[in-house]
Design a protein around this nucleic acid. Sequence first.
DNA 1: TTGCTCCTCACGTCACGTGAGGTGGC
DNA 2: TTGCTCCTCACGTCACGTGAGGTGGC
Lengths: 279, 279
Amino acid sequence: VIGVGAFARLAQVSVRTLHHYDEVGLLRPAHVDADTGYRWYTAEQLHRLNRVLALRDLGFPLAEIRDIVDDRVSLDELRGMLRLRRAESRERVAAETERLARVEARLRQIEMEDRPPEYDVVVKRVEPALVAARDGTAPSFGDPIGPLLGRLYAEVHDELARLGVGVTGPEIALYDDTGGAGTPIRVTAAVPVDDPGPFAGASGAVALRDLTGIGRAASTIHRGPMARVGDGYQALLLWTEATGERIEGLGREVYLECSGPQDTWVTELQLALAPRREA
Amino acid sequence: VIGVGAFARLAQVSVRTLHHYDEVGLLRPAHVDADTGYRWYTAEQLHRLNRVLALRDLGFPLAEIRDIVDDRVSLDELRGMLRLRRAESRERVAAETERLARVEARLRQIEMEDRPPEYDVVVKRVEPALVAARDGTAPSFGDPIGPLLGRLYAEVHDELARLGVGVTGPEIALYDDTGGAGTPIRVTAAVPVDDPGPFAGASGAVALRDLTGIGRAASTIHRGPMARVGDGYQALLLWTEATGERIEGLGREVYLECSGPQDTWVTELQLALAPRREA
DNA sequence: TTGCTCCTCACGTCACGTGAGGTGGC
DNA sequence: TTGCTCCTCACGTCACGTGAGGTGGC
């Protein structure tokens, strides 16, 4: 029978921790003085505490630890809990390893460029959307694509106005350059819409389409004229290189703000990433 | 200018998150309606939000993110913060990887033995202590060491009683078998004491000694007679094997409870571990 | 009487999640 | 009038850390 201080020193935990374990019923003292409230522990309880600490070291929450040390879980259940813990732990290792890669990429970048980065890359999901779309073809990325896109969007909006269909989000442009260098680029001008009803009677080049979502997209925000959007794409490419990510499929632009002069435009650039490599 | 819901959908964050960022001053809406309290955001703010999310992905706390996006840190400071983050992230990867190894070891053990483990191994620090100690030699681990230890402890306690020195903790036994198989084992019986004063005039085999601490010790609790303490040591050895730890130096036993018959004894077994392998 | 150990509240942590209860414009 | 979006509290999360303020035995 020893006091809480000595017991804590023996087990290398804080007195507060023992108070807490008493509170949540994880380790009740062998005896509590009715008058003073002093807690008294036995050597036998050090065994229980050791079991608790061993499970805590494995990452189990206290509630589960209580079930285990109180023998409320069968051997099979314990096995299951351990497998779950293993999966969680692996997930954490993977996530933190990727995070570390991003930190290191950022650090290398800042040391190379010697100034804070202008583009911040975020990995996000892109939800699927229902769009009215019009396809076109541009000779290459070298030529300005703006006028072409402008014509395509004009057609889409004309058609939407004619059908009386409502727009539900900013315009989206899709690029498909999988043909290789020198080949023409397929460009799509898309506008999110909500109600597909009136399209039943639609005809012509403007068509309703289910725009697929992207599980993991590298995204960044470009501010300013589209003539300099290349800076943004370059930042995205450098980022994928530095973090070891791989690009998959086509790129998208979302025109978040394009009402005033191009100096004030805000565009989101998205590149689809290959699924996460598992450890 | 778009509402909080549309803004949240664009950036793939929750509305609550935007409320929170407003609260802590990380991202104030471009405009808040004085009557309704409605928050209105601009495309420009999506750029700021993207910066915030990018830094959040790197693991920075919101307070630091605010300093960064508000340009309150210099480039050098930013570099320093990134290096710190890198160090923290590495530390987390290492810690979680070790935890994973412990979980897997436990899982393998439970699958081999098909019953919950009897011994729980915990890694802990052992504090240095001032002890009165008496050395002895045992022929090997095969022979019972109990009687020898009993004689040594009797001598120590006699001397302490003679000098009037107080005991401050449970008895500790040290074993040194680094001589190899077949060679005799050095055994030390130690008793923690507080006041070294009276020892000034001490002489003979019982000596005052500074017992060194152990940075990382694998520890487990053995309950029952010392004749079966081998089970506990075997559990410790299996654990070190399974987790890839390496034993270093000598072993210790702490007699937490040894007043009644040996069936009721509680003994802590400690083995010093090699310093943590860095990633 | 001074130290020492111990006690019980009770707030803080970190970044939101999750209702509860209510309001304003189409 | 019914939906829809939005609002403001305010508690909960997880395992304790950290005072504040006070008591009992040597």
